[in-house]
Design a protein around this nucleic acid. Structure first.
Lengths: 235, 235
DNA sequence: AATATTAGGTGTAAAGGTGACACATAATTT
DNA sequence: AAATTATGTGTCACCTTTACACCTAATATT
């Protein structure tokens, strides 16, 4: 039995334990700019940082990341994915800490009201960030890369949209993600050809004269698309 | 100063530290089958496992993964990439351990001779694995998915090829990765159209009657291709 | 009431890439 | 000298992508 192997235990006891933290890059889209949610955590009043917390003894990493996200936003069922583990020996000057970064995509509208007051949370443009704690700027940078990479291969952008949205709104999101200006005609054709959107009868009022039709995601098809992506790649 | 903030330190002291391990999924290709290098580590004589080790106080995660890979294979400058952190509370029954898994792609020819004897290392087909320690089977599974995903979008397959190789050999690698049989004519057209290969004058002898020309990777262009992928995606 | 304005939405044609398939070629074996 | 076997080039139909033009709906202006 491994469980009680004496050499094994000795080998374990020689090792140094470290603190394990989780940090979340919470990305949102306000209709114009790609934004990241930053907080002033507890006692670190001077510096903006990512929302984070410690791994508890009874949790998996995913559970911990979800818990921490919930503590700040009150949201569950959020798109949340492990990004990368950061383990530079000096990344946290107080004590050696390995941080597992997660990135979350949320619908800003959902959020607004529910934000916990305890953290002085605020949305910042990802292209104009304040100085951040530790290596959190690296984490944000990597998350943008990951978002660009994924959004190019998977219909992941919907995670940042409200329940109903227009094609021009979605185009603005992709413009913001890639910092460019896609052709509206080709963009809408490409998006609609995925068959993942359901056109609603309702039009958006106020923003433009003509008004654009609202769409919503066909959740069943969307789920299927995300899941079948891997088999699909291999022809 | 954060460094000496009293509340801060108190907060840190309440936390539980855990052991941090690294495990490497070392993938190779022998010309026919995609293989993973497994070991019988130290005292765990009964079970095959991934090569792994503990994070040392002075190392980054990448450094630790490289060190551990070197200990087994004697190789440096290997394609090595962080895969995922695994942190189920009970994944290691002896004590709570968070393991950061890395996946490595190596040229089997390189390896052969240099393998350390200390670990009883052996290559196994990824499609026919023995029972593995802890959650190592999950790690291997995830690494195959990642490899399939990446190889579909990036010219990463070359990492598994020897310095010079033929197009039919490369096709066999892709056949093995995707468990399929690509059309040789379309495959070679697609590969050559990347402009990443340099044709050599030399032909492979012995394997077939006609013999296939050897190619090698244009390393400058390859490096550029890997790096420029992100900007490239956004048109 | 008529016209101008503005953003939404549809259409189209050229160019490029992909997939399915046939055949010529080089070198070894018989 | 003929047969064999895997290499490597060629072609054609089809689909996707790109670039660009114009019509439309609804509000704003005169």
């Amino acid at each position: 039995m491994i469980r009680t192997h004496p050499h094994m235990l000795a080998q374990y006891k020689q090792q140094h334990p470290y603190l394990v933290a989780l940090d979340s890059i919470i990305l949102g889209f306000d209709g114009e700019t790609l934004r990241v949610l930053l907080v002033k955590r507890g006692v670190e009043e001077e510096t903006w940082s990512l929302m984070g917390g410690w791994l508890q003894p009874d949790e998996t990493l995913d559970q911990a990341a979800n818990r921490i996200l919930y503590e700040l936003t009150g949201l569950t069922n959020v798109y949340l994915e492990q990004l990368h583990a950061f383990g530079d020996p000096h990344r946290d000057p107080i004590t050696r800490t390995v941080s597992v970064a997660y990135f979350a995509l949320i619908k800003v509208a959902d959020d607004e009201s529910r934000l916990s007051d305890a953290y002085q949370a605020q949305w910042f443009s990802v292209y104009d960030l304040p100085p951040l704690l530790f290596d959190h700027a690296d984490m944000v940078e990597l998350s943008i890369k990951r978002l660009r990479y994924k959004a190019a291969h998977q219909p992941i952008g919907f995670e940042l949209m409200p329940e109903k949205f227009t094609i021009p709104q979605l185009k603005k999101l992709y413009d913001a993600i890639y910092n460019t200006d896609f052709d509206k005609r080709n963009f809408s054709r490409k998006i609609l050809s995925t068959g993942l959107l359901i056109k609603l009868d309702e039009k958006q009022k106020g923003y433009s004269k003509k008004g654009a039709f609202y769409y919503q995601v066909d959740k069943a098809k969307y789920q299927q698309a995300i899941e079948s992506l891997l088999s699909f790649i291999a022809n």
